[in-house]
């Protein structure tokens, strides 16, 4: 697993190194996935570019819309005061990633670039209509997270390009988020299924104005359940309607059977967890209002 190690101290230098090494190199954020992949022989790299001396990549700005630097750790997400309310799902997604040791080091940006279909925080970010910003020699570009994830371990990053940050809008009132996951254990689990939901009610607090549902571990990438979202928007979120959304989400998931679970079970769990996550969103909106 031998390679050369580089530690750029500016974004420009990092971009430069990225461009120079192309497919022979990778950026290292927390390294909690990268080092394992290198050790397992899945990645053979000649250059590793450590990012933690590049300034400005680990900030959280939550005044108005939210921006997260790519090097924000799961720990930082878990503890940030701005995420304890409507954005609670960010905490719920972050706090089930590995143990403390991994969350202290592993980063949100690294997790996205790793592009695991079972990533826990990514579905939450999908429900927030997050955009990602990438920097390369050609300059900066911003694209929706949804389109950024291409396949297992694959993203729209160009060779040498670097994910620098994420951005999503603050949620309006009468909104809430929730994250749920299923696995064999109660900790240290790669999700068998994970589900994130966001619900925004209309001004009257009666109907669903905006719904986002995202699923993990049931398709080649984490992905939105758009049919379920559409079916709920404009509707009164009755228990039946939420259950119907769960059924639709299950129908539009494309799980595989693997060592962790069968496709049949995953489909069943999607239905259950989507319904529960939406119900939890609704309860949270009502709790916040009361």
């Amino acid at each position: 697993m031998s390679f050369e190690y580089h530690e750029p101290t500016s974004l420009a230098e990092a971009v430069d190194l990225g461009a120079r090494f192309g497919a022979d190199g990778r950026f290292l954020a927390g390294g909690t996935d990268l080092i394992i992949q290198i050790r397992r022989g899945k990645l053979r790299l000649r250059h590793v570019v450590g990012l933690h001396r590049v300034p400005g990549l680990d900030g959280i700005d939550a005044n108005g819309s939210v921006t997260l630097g790519a090097l924000v750790t799961h720990r930082a997400l878990e503890r940030h005061s701005a995420f304890q309310g409507r954005l609670r799902a960010l905490v719920e997604g972050a706090e089930v990633v590995g143990g403390h040791q991994v969350r202290n080091v592993g980063t949100v940006g690294g997790n996205i670039v790793n592009a695991s279909p079972a990533a826990d925080v990514t579905p939450v970010l999908l429900t927030l209509d997050t955009t990602v910003t990438c920097a390369g020699r050609g300059g900066e570009r911003t694209l929706p997270l949804d389109g950024f994830l291409v396949g297992p371990g694959q993203t729209a990053l160009r060779p040498g390009e670097l994910l620098t940050g994420l951005r999503f809008s603050a949620l309006p009132g009468r909104s809430a988020t929730a994250f749920l996951k299923a696995g064999r254990r109660k900790a240290m689990e790669i999700s068998v299924v994970c589900v994130a939901a966001r619900l925004t009610l209309d001004a009257a607090g009666e109907r669903c104005a905006e719904v986002r549902i995202a699923l993990g571990a049931v398709a080649p990438t984490t992905r939105r359940a758009r049919a379920a979202e559409r079916a709920l928007e404009g509707r009164v979120p009755t228990p039946d309607a939420l259950r119907a959304a769960g059924r639709l989400a299950a129908a539009e998931s494309q799980p595989i059977s693997d060592v962790r679970a069968s496709a049949r079970y995953r489909t069943l769990v999607v239905e259950t967890l989507v319904t529960r996550a939406l119900t939890r969103c609704l309860e949270r909106i009502r709790d916040a209002a009361s």
């Binding site: 190690y5 390294g31 394992i36 403390h100 991994v102």
Partner: peptide, 21 residues
């Protein structure tokens, strides 16, 4: 980083020394 037996504190925080360069 699954078993945790390599845990040390880095600047006071627990980390898995096995996956930290």
């Amino acid at each position: 980083a699954e078993c945790g037996v390599c845990t040390v504190l880095l600047d006071g925080r627990a980390v898995n020394a096995c996956i930290l360069l």
